[in-house]
Design a protein around this nucleic acid. Structure first.
Lengths: 209, 209, 209, 209
DNA sequence: TATGAATGAGGCTTCATTCAT
DNA sequence: CATGAATGAAGCCTCATTCAT
């Protein structure tokens, strides 16, 4: 119909729409909950007809799956960045933590992608992508905690697993607050402060102040 | 089938069915998520036709609302019990924490009732009941933390609000793990251990070991 | 179970309930429309449980059928009363008309019973009772109109059928006003005035004032 | 299947379906009563699945509302046409009346739209559209009656309001007959005859024959 | 790439009706 | 005579998905 061939890019507008759909779906996932997102909501937000979504994704779960995959990649990327981001373990664990908070601040629907139940058993891979990345996140923290114990930054009596849980829990607490209130104010700042408070208890010095 | 004849009952079946429906709905809320529960699922689990539910509850949201109300009362009850449960603030905060874990262990759908989004603006009171109780829970912890600072059990430099957040976050971290894994093993035991670890960092002695 | 035998009357309380149900159903028929009446509405209005209705009527249509029958009898009774109520045809037609208005004023749901459509083909006899009576009402008017023409009270050029239609239409116009407004004020008074105005045009004198 | 290719159409099917739905709903409204019309009945009549209706109307009441609105506009249009349709008041009132009969003959469900009870308080605007138009119809008749009294076509002793009621009642009587019998034969013809008979009684001449 | 039309599955809710007590 | 429990049919509406254009 259109004999004006798009010159160089013909994949870009396509990928652009896909990205838009993912983005809108992600926003809605935070607003109404991931499972409550409908193709109709996405379409309306984009000014499209509802079936238009299916020109870009074969099914609704694929949208969620791609989002989950995308989020998983972001988390993984964060981890590898943080691993190379400092000389000492405590700096690296701090970076791990703070970057992760920033990620959640940017994609606040992320935490809920971890607890989606699988309606048909089909998208077991869906939340899997996020969960796997989150396990890697935890493992990365734990590795740094162990390293910090070895370097003597954290006291030797510390259980690495439990310390990791406590560090991660600081983030989760902020996430829950955000989910309940829908409010992201001070999310990262509070996280930074609480992180320092948390690891202060782990230091080898006994100097808690 | 049951050779134990129901002795005096004439009120039982009535409130009994309602309680059954609530119970089944609560179980399903954990299995598939509170918003995903359908009246059909409840009915099937009870071996009833779906409209039969409406002989006991005027609408689906009323089921969820009653559950939320019930959970809120349990939380509130826990708080008042814990407040009277020990001489010193640290014992009381420990009781607050542990009892709350037990509550979640018993009603694992509880946390998700806090993050239900309001589909129509109608059940604002729905999650409200739980959220209000949870705020009271937090406030109760904070009050004990402040008391512990005054009694000297916790160091004077502690920020009560932040310490409260960290204590509460221990529970949230366990909850998230449970939601992700669907597994409640060691839930309370791990909670107890992590709680001690967490407040160790708050003690006035500096003795973190 | 009850060894206290009800002494004389054991049909009366039964018939009393039946009458109550009919009455309430009739009231509701005016308020919400005959087809919109539900057994639940009737039961609630009477402070009964909904299945209790079925102790008195085998089915819902039977309630409506009895009401229709009852209304039909009232109409018929009115007709026979009016037929014997005066010496001259015009007086009798006036009585027919005014008594009928009073009947509608008392049972304002009556007109709508005439236009109920039969949902299943079963209660064809339902509206039939009222329609038959209404046809008799019309026939009675027409007979008096013919008599009045013969006696000379109405002019000889009058078509009895059409004059009857015009007389009946006065009532229908008031009924429609009442149905639209839900208001019965002045119903009978306006009817009386308009009736006189209507038949003034039929008189043999040509004296329209 | 159809070897008659639809030539230019791309707008037609859209508004076409909406119109079809309205039309079918209107027909059914006459057959079973406006409140008894279901979306399923409409769909079956059109050979569609029931949810298909919702691709064209957001809700069932919107179908009825659009119909009511449409009918209201037709009535209003009739009034303005009739107002300009003749030199003398009696001609104009005759046109008002006859056109209105034709309208009802074409849309026989119209009268029942006036007496729909409001199930939820929501479609108060529903019957309102028709009722408002009907009040305008009455007012238009009354204005012409007053004019006819002034011009001397109607006798000076006539009460305009009551005369209007009597004129309108002629139509209502025919409507009721049609609703009861479901038969539209002679509807307009009988109306014309009875109208003349009715206004004959209003003429200034006293010549009723 | 997008739309308009439509569908099947499924969810909530109402209602007449039955039955055991 | 009345109730509590339950059911089947039916109604409204939403949603993911398909298809022709």
């Amino acid at each position: 119909m259109a004999h004006e061939a798009p010159p160089v890019s013909s994949q870009r507008p396509v990928e652009g729409r896909k990205a838009e759909i993912r983005q809108v779906a992600l926003d809605l996932a935070f607003k109404v909950g991931p499972t409550q997102v409908t193709t109709g909501m996405i379409a309306k937000q984009l000014g499209l007809s509802q079936p238009a979504i299916y020109k870009h994704f074969p099914s609704k779960s694929d949208i969620l799956a791609e989002i989950a995959c995308h989020l998983g990649e972001r988390i993984a990327h964060n981890i590898s960045q943080a691993k190379a981001s400092g000389a000492d373990p405590v700096t690296r664990v701090r970076n791990l933590f703070l970057r992760h908070l920033e990620l959640i601040n940017r994609y606040p629907a992320l935490p809920e992608f971890m607890i989606i139940r699988d309606p048909k058993g089909d998208h077991s891979a869906l939340q899997g992508a996020v969960q796997t990345a989150m396990m890697a996140y935890r493992a990365a923290i734990e590795a740094e905690v162990e390293a910090a114990i070895i370097t003597g930054q954290f006291r030797a009596t510390l259980t690495a697993t439990d310390a990791t849980t406590l560090i991660a829990s600081v983030g989760q607490s902020l996430v829950l607050r955000m989910l309940v209130s829908g409010n992201r104010d001070n999310f990262c700042a509070d996280g930074a402060r609480l992180f320092e408070m948390q690891i202060a208890g782990f230091s080898a010095t006994g100097d808690n102040g």
